[in-house]
Nucleic acid binder design. Structure first.
Length: 552
RNA sequence: GCGCCAGUAGCUCAGUUGGAUAGAGCAACGGACUUCUAAUCCGUAGGCCGAGGGUUCGAAUCCUUCCUGGCGCGCCA
């Protein structure tokens, strides 16, 4: 709809250039068309005349008059007006809008999808929590945002892979192993001194107990080997928990990528030697450094420590290079905002190895402040006092939880009060949207009962003559561009706001008018309209990973 | 000290990437169920868009200087 109008304007502009009524020959790559806030200003509006004012050396309104003259008689438009400083406002013919209803019927659950991604291969890496403990609420936000960004990109025609990076090679894994081993010895009656930096949380005792029943004790096994065994056992167990929790949240990964595997396959060594060849790394104080300052970082970064062990950054270099080797055109990392300091060094590394830094997009997810009864909960795995994601899902429900995480832009911090979320659950916004869907399903049941659906045949959309009905159709028409915009900007919350707007418009219409009236033709037309609404509600809900209940 | 993110109605937040008279949800107040589900709707009230300066036809949005809050600034992950 919008594109058709845009094309028509473009043609007219070319016409003006050909006729020499306009002379600047400025070629605009894209004509800006927007939907005015005020409906009196028409369905679409363009500032074209304003932007041409300077190159044309003419008054904007004068230019607008010339353009409007060239556009006169276009079948798309009902009315074209010049307003304000030189805006051109278009009101489209109602028949144009009704075509949208047929499109929605035809496309069904594909309505809203587009091909602006054009099959570009893009990877979304998210969650990637260390496999040393269960997911907590902070991971939940990143999980939902990452999952939904991926879904929205898919809908926009990108080829998407969801990946979880498993940090199973670092120090913290050994710490987990050591903690399990100590708890195991405790279970065997030994008195042990539990170190400050060990994992103190109770789940470690569960892991030790499980190890003992399944694998037996570790008497007579050398310390280092025992730690290694416990670590590997612990990581495998914790990963199972994580996968189960994510499944309960409706999240599925296409790929689980192991850091340890990166080392085992020699990828880290390989990438590091590439850096050396390019003269980007250097030795100093017995350590190996990457000259990231060359590409805008504020200091150089260590790759290999003076004790010979690798930093987390070293494997990240290899990991990200390997992503591009796998053929992704673009790579998205979803991180907690507390890691934002890592962006410059990652971009520097990519630039050094010959990639465009723009090919890596880092989405920073601001902190979730978990509250209970208004009091802050202390987060952190070692404190032992944290609320797991699973507990939250069990308490407030999956749909409400997902919706809550998607409601705000991801770069604004989120206060999540469990008691409040439960208390408000009766008028939680997610139910508002779902209720709209359920209501339409209910209308359908009533229609079926009165035999109305048998009267199918071509629907007379001219019966939809109320301004509210036309407004609903227009709202439905903007769904595809909303999805596309959300995809290109990685902002899934746009879908949430769209959904709330559409639901509000429907509820208002529902309260004011009846769908099923005495006149069958009107009933059928209205039924077609609300079912188009239902389709779009369902598509949007699905995109967000939420259910679309038929009854509530 | 440096860097990143934020500052919009009493509270929580949107604001179509620079457009016309700044919006919604809670909370407050007043109304609507013999009619397809009241988990809903209608109405009222609420604003120096943190502050100053700049850019232009036009700024909540862009540049700059401050103020406030959060988070970072390791041979930790």
């Amino acid at each position: 709809m919008k594109d058709q109008l845009r094309l028509a304007i473009k043609v007219s502009l070319q016409q003006c250039y050909a006729d020499k009524t306009l002379n600047s020959e400025v070629s605009l790559d894209e004509i800006q068309l927007e939907i005015p806030k005020n409906s009196e200003h028409g369905d679409f509006s363009t500032n074209l005349a304003l932007t041409l004012a300077k190159p044309e050396r003419k008054a904007p309104r004068k230019i607008a008059e010339i353009l409007v003259a060239a556009l006169q008689g276009n079948p798309l438009c009902d009315k074209i007006e010049i307003a304000g400083p030189g805006f051109i406002n278009f009101r489209l013919a109602a028949t144009c809008w009704y075509e949208i209803l047929d499109q929605i019927t035809e496309q069904g659950n594909k309505y809203g999808c587009s091909n602006i991604g054009a099959g570009t291969k893009i990877q979304v890496e998210f969650v990637s929590a260390n496999p040393t403990g269960p997911l907590h609420i902070g991971h939940g936000r990143g999980a939902v945002v990452g999952d939904t960004v991926a879904a929205v990109l898919q809908a926009a025609g990108f080829e998407v892979q969801r990946e979880y990076y498993i940090n199973d090679a670092g120090n913290q894994v050994l710490t987990l192993g050591r903690s399990i081993l100590l708890r195991l010895r405790e279970l065997q009656g030994e008195v042990v001194e539990f170190p400050e930096d060990g994992y103190q949380a109770p789940y470690v005792i569960d892991l030790a107990t499980k190890y003992r029943t399944e694998q037996g004790g570790l008497n007579g096994v050398a310390e280092a080997e025992a730690i290694e065994l416990c670590a590997r056992f612990g990581v495998a167990e914790v990963l199972k928990w994580i996968e189960v929790d994510l499944q309960a949240f409706g999240i599925h990964f296409d790929s689980w990528y192991s850091e340890k595997n990166l080392y085992d396959q020699g990828m880290v060594k390989k990438e590091l030697s590439k850096l050396k060849e390019k003269g980007l790394s250097f030795e100093m104080d017995d350590a190996l450094w990457l000259r990231t300052t060359e590409y805008g970082d504020d200091k150089d970064r260590v790759l290999i420590k003076s004790d010979g062990s690798y930093t987390y950054f070293a494997s990240d270099v290899a990991y990200h290079m390997e992503k591009f080797d796998r053929g992704f055109n673009r790579v998205i990392d979803v991180w907690g905002a507390d890691h934002h300091g890592y962006i410059p060094r990652m971009k520097a590394m990519l630039a050094g190895l010959g990639h465009s830094p723009e090919d890596l997009e880092v989405l920073l997810i601001q902190m979730v402040n978990l509250l209970r009864d208004g009091k802050p909960y202390i987060m952190g795995k070692r404190s032992g006092n944290f609320v797991t994601l699973k507990e939250v899902i069990d308490e407030v429900g999956r749909d409400a939880c997902r919706f809550f995480f998607l409601m705000r832009r991801c770069d604004s911090p989120l206060d999540f009060d469990l008691e409040l979320a439960k208390q408000q659950s009766s008028d939680n916004p997610v139910y508002y949207v779902q209720y709209a869907h359920a209501r339409i399903c209910s209308i359908n049941r009533n229609a079926a009962e009165s035999g109305l659906e048998q009267l199918s045949g071509s629907v007379d959309y001219q019966r939809l003559e109320l301004v509210e009905e036309l407004a609903l159709v227009k709202q439905l028409a903007r769904f595809p561009e909303t999805v596309a915009g959300a995809a290109l900007s990685y902002e899934p919350h746009r879908i949430v706001f769209y959904l709330q707007d559409l639901a509000a418009q429907f509820h208002s219409y529902y309260n004011r008018y009846r769908v099923l009236v005495d006149d069958p033709a009107t009933s059928r037309a209205r039924l077609a309209l609300v079912n188009a609404v239902r389709t779009v509600l369902a598509n949007a809900l699905q995109l967000l990973g939420l259910s679309a209940p038929e009854q509530m």
